[in-house]
């Protein structure tokens, strides 16, 4: 499942997509993210039959993604995003640059 956390408002699209078929809930992204955007849960709240841990973005964080992720997204000289870099499964992607 592709879980799109985040939102779209008048200023743009701010979604973090987690591919839950790839994510194994290892939690590396949780450690890497300075904004504490991610959280590993034992059961996927969007997939009650799944038995394995998976990462989610809590709702109140999701509503502020543009701001929470801001420090990792300087307008220029952008390093790789810590969460994307940390994920061994390549499960995370961001929808926005600016």
């Amino acid at each position: 499942m592709i879980a799109n956390y985040g939102y779209k408002d008048g200023s743009g699209d701010y979604f973090i997509a987690v591919d839950t078929d790839k994510c194994d809930g290892c939690g590396r992204c949780v450690e890497a993210c300075p904004g504490t955007v991610f959280e590993v849960v034992d059961e996927d709240p969007n997939d009650p039959f799944r038995e394995d841990p998976v990462v989610i973005v809590a709702r109140d964080k999701g509503r502020k993604l543009k701001y929470e992720c801001g420090p990792c997204k300087p307008p220029t000289n952008r390093p790789a995003l810590p969460c994307v870099e940390a994920c061994p499964q390549d499960a995370i992607s961001h929808s926005w640059d600016r």
């Binding site: 499942m1 592709i2 985040g6 939102y7 408002d9 008048g10 979604f15 997939d47 039959f49 509503r63």
Partner: peptide
Amino acid sequence: GKVTNFLMNDKCAA
């Protein structure tokens, strides 16, 4: 009926 892709927008009233 299993979810394969979703999004939910509850941030913006538009």
